[in-house]
Design a protein around this nucleic acid. Sequence first.
RNA 1: CGGGGUGUAGCUUAGCCUGGUAGAGCGCCUGGUUUGGGACCAGGAGGUCGUAGGUUCGAAUCCUAUCGCCCCGACCA
Length: 588
Amino acid sequence: MKFWSQTFIPTLKETPSDAEITSHKLLLRAGLVRKLGGGLYTFMPAGLRVLQKISQLCREEMDREGGIELAMPHVHPVENWEQGPRWPAAREIMYRVDHAGAGKGRSKEPEFVLGPTHEEVITPLVKSEITSYRDLPKNFYQITTKFRNEIRPRYGLMRAREFIMKDAYSFDATDEGAVESYHKMKRAYTAFFNRCGLKTISVEADTGVMGGSFSHEFMVPAPIGDDDVVYCDASGYAANREKATSGIVPADLADAAPVGALEEFATPGVVTIAALAAAPYGVPADQQFKTLVYMGDGKPFLVILRGSDDLEEAKLGALGFQLWRTATPEEIEPVMGAKPGSLGAVAGTIRNPTALAGVFADHAIKLVGNGTTGANKDGFHLRRVNVARDLAITSWGDFRRVREGEPCPKSGQPLKIARAIEVGHVFKLGTKYSDKFGAVFTDANKQSHPMVMGCYGIGISRTLQAVIEQSNDADGIIWPWSVAPWQVLVVNLDPQDAAASEMAKKLAAAAEAAGADVLVDDRAERPGVKFKDADLIGLPLRLTVGGRGLKEGIVEMKWRAGKDVKKIPLADAEQIIAQAVRTAAGLA
RNA sequence: CGGGGUGUAGCUUAGCCUGGUAGAGCGCCUGGUUUGGGACCAGGAGGUCGUAGGUUCGAAUCCUAUCGCCCCGACCA
């Protein structure tokens, strides 16, 4: 048992002004963390306990599915990253570490980076250590601090520069094996989040910088989330908005026959979809083609969408570029022949079509059939543009952003969209990393193959905050039994009184013997302060010992999540408490 | 990086517009009274007003720059 006076739980009556969301406020007010700088937090004693409990649950679930724990360095030689498949994209989020005296030496400046994840470390390791199919599959994991130079740290631990993550890497001999490893991890994640008392939904996700063939994210629905989840209750379809599709695009290209010859018309000053939709032109947005110019690994390419649709930028990842961004007007004009606002993809109107890396069309433009687009001549547009006849399309894809209410691709029912926080992510990577690093093995037929990989992350510190975000009330945190810093709080209202202190210790010992972690509030504070703090720090079970109760021959028992205060007779108290603890632990 | 906001005691903040010796509440220290839901009385400590320039007889207040932090957008567990 721990006495409050012997540890350090600096609670705050007032909310620090730099916290905005509930969980961040409670982290600070309950004395769980303190800020060092933007996205940098000290875990205070109680916060550290929660972190350790969550880590332990994670460890147990990983081990259950065959995970093997190890610990890799935080400082990585930059060469590992230069060799890896995602250096151009990853370098921007990595902190660089130069050794003392860098730049003074005669040879090339050694350079290190702080690890944002560890594919570039584990893959070379496995390459040199594992060469036979007999040693596969393997799944290595660790729970460590990760470093990312976040563009914008925010919401306390939700998006930090330095955070705790569980990362795992699976290596299989076959694709089927990799799929099996992937499902084991999905299972482990589901079990882990359940044990943390966290309601999550798993959604299809974009693979992003990671690369890889498919992935799922574990999301906690919350209005402050960074992601939009698109879902359908009827079919169970759920996907990150970056990845989500809708059933809105059934049209066949053949249905849209040309309706006449192309015609150019003057549109002085019209540079937006909305302006062309307004009088005097009156071309509805969904009858326009929107032409966007992007730069992919240094070369321009076009994306064509319905005028009424928005681009979902993450979907451009399917095009195979390492890096992409919107093109600047200076880059656009020499290629297209016009400034943004008058652009189009009609073959023959593009000034320098050979400069383009491709023209990529969203399926939804089939719904337009014949529409209006820019003439690649400032102040002019073209009408009666036919998709099949006039547009110089390299390939088709899904690039549009899904909107709420569009039909579900599975059930046809209206899709819903909700904000959510990503707390876990599983990727099937394939051989992207093993190819790059030469992580190969020899099979039974003496043939050499690249290992098939997967990688799996859980934001441990983020999970901690997500639990608070999901489990609190106006008075403070309501910890689930499984991750509470302590599970039982014995409030001694009269710590100067020997009998009360004796009883408090006795009850604490009984709870502890039954398997609970116990905190005893022995501070010389007024009762009001102690009750307020008890609610704020949110331990699941509260026992109250005071002179008044002792005179009556009772102590009080109250669950943080409930309202009832039970008076229990002193004679039965130890037994009742032990029973309550066992029951709660059994539920956890 | 773009847009918006903000910086005054450990915390929450007033004062700034309209320049004139920096105020309060909480917390902290001392003494007393209290004692079952953030007590009361009396006394006390604590602030180069983010930093640097400038304007002015005089700057927390006006101007410029700079830094930190918070919020909105693009990236991530």
